[in-house]
Design a protein around this nucleic acid. Structure first.
Lengths: 88, 88, 88, 88
DNA sequence: TCAGATAAAATCGCGC
DNA sequence: GCGCGATTTTATCTGA
């Protein structure tokens, strides 16, 4: 009895194993994220090696992202209007 | 004659097709990155749902990351010392 | 009447004098900061002139800074743990 | 004899005391720099508390800095021209 | 003087 | 909505 997972103190029942599992899942995901970020940097570097201007490319990517977000925003508002009309 | 890729202005030969390919690779990678960021958020949410304190979890992740970085820094400085010794 | 500070347009009451004072305080502080950055550079240069390896020195400074930050992080998480315990 | 500062190995005569002094001077200066950076942040925060838009303030500071640099640049070029003329 | 590395500033996004 | 932390962008610096 009194195995680690059966601690009965009023307060500090922290399931270390479970916590550890969450932490490790997060760390694996962050590692993946970092890898992809590195891949992105590599693509920019490759583009630079091909004579493209990285700063300008970043601007283009940023503008296109804003455009996409704007479009989604507008579609969302449109949907809201359509819903509102349907409810009349 | 004079197909797009044959423009001969001295300066502004921007290979649009090539650029577009780079941009699209980057955008795909950024989409993947965003997905992973969302996954991380989900894991934190799940952990919270299991009674864990997200703020503390973030600190743990942060401290463990610092540990890793510090270890790498120390290996780097060891290399620098060894190089410095080798150069004498 | 109608002294500058009494402009009554509904929206654009920008207190220019006040803003200017803030801006100038910031600029003075940035000037000081730049001076100190220059001092640091001078110390590195002097050390180099005395035969020390600047790259290694920077690494040492960086590692010592990480040590300090890690210590602070650990104190912070200890506080978080104590708070969490107190809240039960 | 053979006091620390008289080590005679061909290679690793590192004057630790001297190095330490340089490191500590740098660390003191970096601490001062950090303090000033914090002061700047505080000024921005105070301005924000007085209803100013921090983002815009940063833009103003940045533009004024560029203006100053531009002016210095232009004066430098002017000096170069004047020197050149003087040499004719 | 330039590229590549390093550090700083600005911006973004989350959790409270 | 605000502070805080992470990320990204910009600037600085060093070594070739």
């Amino acid at each position: 009895m009194n195995k680690p997972e059966m601690i009965t103190a009023e307060s500090s029942d922290v399931d270390g194993g479970h916590l550890r599992a969450f932490i490790e899942r997060i760390e694996r995901l962050e590692e993946e994220k970092r890898t992809i970020a590195d891949d992105i940097k590599e693509v920019y570097a490759e583009a630079k090696g091909n004579g493209f201007d990285v700063k300008i490319m970043r601007k283009i990517v940023s503008i296109r992202r804003m455009d996409r977000e704007k479009r989604i925003e507008e579609e969302t508002i449109l949907d809201l209007y359509l819903q509102a009309l349907g409810e009349i």
